[in-house]
Computed example of a mutant assay.
Amino acid sequence: MNKYAGLFLWSLVAVLALIVIAFKPDNSKVIDLKNQIVKINSEIEYKKDQTELESPLKNNFNLEKYKQETTNKLTFAFTQLLGGIHDNSSYEKQKKELQNILGTDLENVVYMHGYNTESKKWVVNKNDSTIVGFDDITNKSDSVLYITTTYEQGTTNQKIKYMYKIHYDLENYKVLSYKELSLN
C-alpha cells in the first residue's frame, strides 16, 4: 500500500503543479498598469512644473501693475470704439493702436457695433461705462477677464449692453480669444 500511496502522492503533486501552471496570473496586465501609473505621474509632474512657470507670482511678477495696465488699455479701446470716435478720420488715426490692444478680430467686432456699414456713419452717441473684471488669475499667459460695456446707440438713445469673456496674456498684453454676449 505504501507503493500506491507514494504513487498517488506524486500524481497529486503533478496534477497540482499543472493546475498552478495553467492558472498562473498574467503579469503583463500588471506591468501595463504600472507603466500607465508611471506615465500619469510624469504628466502630473510636467503640468505642475508648467503651472509654477506660468504662475503670476513667479519671479516677482507684479500682478497688480499688469492688471491695472490691462484695464487701462482695454477700457481705452472699448470707450473709443463705442462712443469716443464719431468720424472716419479719427478712427483711421487710432485704428492701428486699437488693433494692437484688442487684436484684429475683436477690434473688428467692436468696430461693427459702433459703425454702420450701410449708412457709413458712427452710430454710438456715447459710452456710459466700460468695466474690466478679472477672474481668479492662476496663469499670467492665459488669464480670464470680463469686459462689460454700456453705450448709447443711434438717434433713439437706446442703451446697449455687451459682455466679453476674454482669454488674455497679461505679460504680453494680448487677446488670445474672446466670446461676446449681448446683455439686452
Rank of each mutant, 00 (worst) to 15 (best):
M1G: 13
K3N: 12
A5D: 11
F8K: 09
F8E: 09
L9C: 06
L9Q: 12
V13D: 09
V15H: 11
V15E: 13
V20N: 11
I21V: 14
I21L: 09
K24N: 14
K24W: 14
S28F: 09
V30N: 14
V30G: 10
L33P: 07
K34F: 05
K34W: 08
Q36E: 15
Q36P: 00
V38Q: 10
V38D: 13
I40E: 13
Y46L: 13
K48S: 14
D49H: 12
K58Y: 15
N62A: 05
K65C: 03
K67V: 01
K67L: 00
T70K: 02
T70V: 03
N72I: 05
K73L: 08
K73H: 12
L74T: 01
F76Y: 15
F76A: 02
T79I: 08
Q80F: 04
G84T: 04
H86A: 07
H86G: 10
N88G: 06
N88C: 08
Y91H: 03
K96M: 08
L102Y: 11
D105W: 08
V110P: 00
H113S: 06
G114T: 05
G114P: 00
G114M: 05
Y115A: 07
T117E: 11
T117N: 15
S119W: 08
K120Q: 15
N125G: 07
D128P: 00
S129K: 10
S129D: 03
T130W: 03
T130R: 04
I131Q: 10
D135E: 15
N139R: 10
N139W: 06
S141N: 14
D142W: 03
V144M: 10
E152Y: 03
E152F: 07
G154T: 11
T155F: 09
T156N: 09
K165D: 01
K165P: 00
K165Y: 00
I166W: 01
Y168R: 09
N172A: 08
Y173S: 13
Y173T: 05
L176E: 08
Y178H: 07
Y178G: 05
K179N: 06
E180M: 04
S182C: 01
S182D: 09
N184L: 04
